[in-house]
Design a binder for these strands. Structure first.
Length: 269
DNA sequence: CTGTAATGC
DNA sequence: GCATTACAG
């Protein structure tokens, strides 16, 4: 009797030891990840916000944006797309609303009417379908840009779907999207909303292994080319837009990641 | 999924 | 203006 309980105690102790050892290993790995991006995981939404060239950053509940009054649209829209955000829910499309939080006055949706261009979401409705409130919030005029319908439903839609695929595969990504806004562009409607000649998307992933980035720069035309042909270094988008995308990253890491147009870490399957 | 447009109240 | 329906890439 005594001998048996001795064995039991020993077995329990060994098991405890194994669990403790594994726990320490796990802790070590997590710490390692956090060190790479400092406070990255603590407040991702604020941490990854790009700089604004206009000084008008607006925080909505489900995404943030920097509004460019001259072009009557956002220069960037940024949000975290978590794996848990992905939803097959199909909410009914509401009407677009003028974003009243834009102090200089956001574009009116009538400026897009009969313009020949789509009201193209920058933050896609499908990326905020985890609640009706979040979904409907994407239908603000500060979140749209004039897009050719074939482009919007073609190559751009393909990219948006790929982002959702990556959010699922990599347990979330942080997304920044916008049109490249330049001095002279075609405009539409009474508000003279600029029609960008290129659109970009910049992604950063710090949830799955080593931190990684990827940037896309796509001409405002539909294309049959594979998406990976539109990959550019983040530096190139920064040069075109004047936006600094991840200013809070430690400089050495930021410089290294933003100079690369290597996409081997991102699965295109 | 991404959207526009016509119709009736 | 809002709701419903039809249609297209």
């Amino acid at each position: 009797m005594r001998r048996k309980s001795g064995f039991t105690l020993l077995a329990v102790l060994i098991l405890l030891g194994v669990f403790a050892y594994e726990y320490v290993l796990e802790e070590k790995e997590q710490t390692h990840i956090i060190v790479e991006g400092e406070k990255v995981k603590r407040n991702t939404n604020a941490y990854f916000l790009p700089t604004s060239t206009t000084g008008q950053i607006i925080h909505h509940n489900s995404y943030s944006l920097s509004y460019h009054e001259d072009h009557e649209q956002a220069e960037w829209v940024a949000y975290e797309l978590k794996k848990s955000h992905l939803s097959s829910t199909n909410f009914k499309r509401p009407y677009f609303e003028v974003d009243k939080t834009v102090k200089t006055g956001a574009a009116h949706w009538r400026s897009y009417k009969n313009s020949g261009y789509d009201r193209g979401h920058l933050c896609p409705a499908a990326d905020r379908s985890y609640s009706k409130e979040a979904h409907d919030e994407t239908f603000l005029t500060s979140n749209i840009s004039p897009q050719d319908h074939d482009f919007n439903s073609g190559i751009w839609n393909k990219l948006e779907q790929k982002v959702r695929y990556w959010a699922h595969k990599y347990d979330g990504v942080f997304v920044v999207t916008g049109g490249v806004l330049k001095e002279k562009m075609e405009t539409i409607g009474e508000d003279a909303v600029s029609v960008p000649n290129q659109f970009y998307k910049v992604l950063i992933d710090n949830n799955n292994g080593p931190i990684k980035m990827i940037a896309f720069l796509i001409p405002h035309n539909d294309s049959d080319k594979p998406l990976h042909e539109f990959v550019v270094p983040v530096d190139e988008v920064e040069k075109l837009t004047g936006i600094d995308f991840f200013p809070e990253l430690e400089d050495e890491l930021e410089n290294k990641l933003e100079a690369s147009s290597n996409y081997k870490d991102w699965s295109f399957n």
